[in-house]
Design a protein around this nucleic acid. Structure first.
Lengths: 236, 236
DNA sequence: TAGATTGTTAATCGATTAACAATC
DNA sequence: TAGATTGTTAATCGATTAACAATC
């Protein structure tokens, strides 16, 4: 949701809208499931249902990639998997580092979805020296002192921050200085980054708060009703 | 991002746009930080910077809530904290259950952001009987068999699913049947839910794929350049 | 009063959707 | 050929932004 993409007129690298880019992984997942079931072709209607969108939107999205379907028939599953993967850049190898190996960092390290999609965990790092050498998801945790060397040696361009909020900005700065240009941030902080660096944020608390907002509305509908609108008084 | 809100014309429960609702937690976090520093008032410009948005957007967002600022002065921090909390429904208690206590579930249970905002973890549940009784974040893990009883006894309306993809839909069905009407889903699956149930999805793999897309563009800009456009041939 | 800053307007932009001509 | 389904158009809708009048 919060992506800083200041290096470009945004939303149309090569003409593909951000909203479309954000849905390509959904299509890809649905297609991968079909592929595993050896389904040869799929219609926009079927695929849209599987991905949880409507078919008009899906066809519009695909139209930005090219004309990969066949009228009257649908889309070739394997061909589309390849085209979307290529478009997303998943046909190449992306070494990532995960910084902060608490429960969350460990969960990320163990997450199967990483490896299966061209993302390779190059290293796990933590500031806690006591953790160094410990195996997590089969990889030894390394001390944060090694950050710069690891990023450079492995040509890491994507960093995942799973540290406490207080450490996030410093880790971010070090990653960026070492050459990382994309950051996935799980710490509940707004990160400041220079131009050309992308930050995406995953915030558990924010998602819950949005749910609470809607939940509150549901309760209001059924029973007690909203308790008045804007108060007329101002703060003291 | 993927929310099904079929019980309403969406995007304007009481007139507040979805995009605005999604930003209220950001403002709230920035305001909480200011509050802790005992800052009495803040301008839209300062607060916007802290939240990572521009000030025009912030003022527009706040205008949906009411006129809580003072021209020439700014916003009273405490007052605004209260108003946004109230709007989001955080002035009440929200019991939540977390289902699936692997690394991710444990990370969620330990996440401080929950408790601090009216969210109370009513129970941790897992299908693995061997885990039952084990303490995680000070709470005993309970067996999934108890799901219905726990949801009913605690009046839980928000459920968090941190199970493997294969188990997610069944857990979701059971939660919904037991009375849960909002679900935060960490499993990489599209959940089917009846009308009136909200689902929000957090997907680690999707966020990484979006980063990879932009990362690929950056590489293309500097060096090798995009390798031709839409191919002229169709699948075999 | 003069300076500062909000709240709102209006223009612009991007995303969604229905409908259907093109075409397999 | 007849039926099915894509790819695209055009209308609509929602979100963003700059600018500024209102007003503290």
């Amino acid at each position: 949701m919060a992506t800083s993409r200041s290096h470009r007129p945004a939303t149309r690298s090569r003409g593909i809208p951000e909203a479309t880019v954000a849905r390509l992984p959904l299509y890809l997942r649905a297609l991968t499931t079909l592929s595993e079931r050896s389904v040869p072709t799929v219609s926009s209607e079927e695929l849209a249902t599987a991905a949880g969108v409507n078919s008009a939107k899906l066809r519009k999205d695909f139209s930005y990639l090219g004309s990969y379907g066949t009228r009257g028939v649908g889309y070739d599953v394997e061909y589309l998997v390849y085209q979307i993967s290529r478009e997303l850049g998943l046909t190449q190898d992306w070494p990532v580092v995960i910084v902060g190996i608490g429960n969350l960092g460990a969960a990320l390290a163990n997450y199967g979805g990483f490896a299966s999609r061209g993302f390779r965990v190059a290293a796990l790092m933590d500031a806690d020296a006591a953790l160094a050498g410990k195996l997590v998801a089969g990889l030894p945790v390394r001390h944060i002192d090694e950050l710069e060397a690891i990023v450079e040696d492995n040509q890491v361009s994507i960093g995942v921050i799973a540290t406490p909020a207080g450490a996030a900005q410093e880790v971010c700065d070090r990653l960026v200085t070492a050459g990382v240009t994309s950051i996935l941030n799980f710490a509940p902080t707004v990160l400041q980054v220079p131009e050309g660096v992308d930050v995406r944020k995953v915030d558990l608390s924010i998602e819950l708060q949005i749910l609470a907002f809607h939940e509150q509305r549901k309760a209001g509908e059924q029973g007690q009703g909203p308790d008045g609108d804007v108060p007329a008084v101002m703060p003291a």
